[in-house]
Simulated scan of single mutants.
Amino acid sequence: MGQVLLLAFLSPELVESILAAQQPAGLTAQKLFWRDRLPLRWEEQERSRGSVM
């Protein structure tokens, strides 16, 4: 349950790209679930999006 809760903090832009199947190639569910790999601030998520979080 805690892992799913972390997904609630994804930036709207990242959610939209995932739903449109346009997420970065290396972005996996496993990488999203790693708490230390997912910045909570949306701006930081967008900056790290290019480096596949």
Rank of each mutant, 00 (worst) to 15 (best):
M1W: 09
M1Q: 11
Q3C: 07
Q3I: 05
V4F: 15
V4W: 14
V4N: 06
V4T: 11
V4R: 14
L5G: 08
L6H: 06
L6V: 05
L6A: 12
L7E: 09
L7V: 08
F9T: 12
F9H: 11
L10I: 05
S11H: 15
P12R: 13
P12A: 13
P12M: 11
E13V: 09
V15Y: 05
E16I: 06
E16S: 15
E16R: 15
S17P: 01
I18K: 04
I18V: 13
L19Q: 14
L19D: 08
A20C: 04
A20W: 00
A21K: 10
A21G: 08
A21W: 04
Q22N: 13
Q22C: 12
Q23W: 03
Q23F: 10
P24W: 03
P24V: 08
A25Y: 04
A25K: 14
A25D: 15
G26D: 10
G26R: 12
L27P: 00
L27W: 04
T28C: 00
T28G: 03
A29P: 08
A29F: 10
A29W: 10
K31E: 05
K31G: 00
K31I: 01
K31H: 02
K31T: 07
K31R: 15
F33P: 01
W34F: 07
W34H: 13
R35D: 01
D36N: 12
R37A: 10
R37C: 04
L38R: 03
P39I: 01
P39G: 00
P39N: 03
P39H: 03
L40Q: 09
L40G: 02
L40R: 13
R41M: 02
R41Q: 09
W42P: 09
E43S: 11
E43W: 02
E43R: 08
E44M: 05
E44T: 08
E44V: 05
E44A: 12
Q45P: 02
Q45I: 03
Q45V: 00
E46I: 00
E46C: 01
E46L: 04
R47M: 06
R47D: 06
R47E: 09
S48F: 06
S48K: 12
S48L: 14
R49A: 09
G50A: 08
V52Q: 12
M53K: 01
M53G: 05
